[in-house]
């Protein structure tokens, strides 16, 4: 699909709004539908679209498989880290109320961090799986 001009121009205008929308879904999940899972998938869809049109090598320059592997583990570590932070601050595991002065602020911070971890892991794992599948056809 490398030589299809219309698809390339359309994708170039579409990819930035898709990424913005992914960030919106990520950080607006408290108020509207969405959250880390959906945002991660949408963000990875933007990069996969880029890779379908401009080639796998170009996409792997944007985010290399090594970086994706590190990010995939980092997301899980963020999530678990929030849990351990609450334990160290004297609460139960993943009881976000102790993260800030008031209960609501603590819950808000905890949910934000946890959803960030979810989004990072889901996005990188989707990209890793896509790279693994698409890389098989490469000479």
């Amino acid at each position: 699909m490398k030589h299809n001009l219309i698809l390339r121009v359309t994708a170039k205008t579409l990819i930035p709004p898709i990424i913005i929308f992914a960030l919106y879904v990520q950080f607006h999940g408290d108020f509207g539908p969405g959250g880390g899972f959906q945002a991660g998938v949408i963000l990875s869809a933007a990069i996969i679209l880029y890779s379908l049109l401009f080639g796998l090598d170009a996409a792997e320059k944007v985010i290399t498989p090594t970086v994706a592997r590190i990010l995939a583990s980092l997301g899980v570590l963020i999530y678990m880290g929030v849990g351990f932070a609450t334990v160290l601050l004297g609460g139960n595991y993943l009881d976000y109320s102790v993260l800030a002065d008031t209960q609501v602020a603590g819950q808000h911070l905890g949910i934000l961090l946890v959803e960030l971890g979810v989004g990072v892991t889901v996005c990188s794992v989707m990209l890793l799986i896509f790279f693994a599948f698409a890389g098989r056809g490469r000479p």
């Binding site: 408290d30 108020f31 609501v104 819950q107 808000h108 949910i111």
Partner: peptide
């Protein structure tokens, strides 16, 4: 409890 309007997220 959480101040989050979307119950699914909370």
């Amino acid at each position: 409890d959480t101040g989050v309007p979307n119950v699914v997220t909370s």
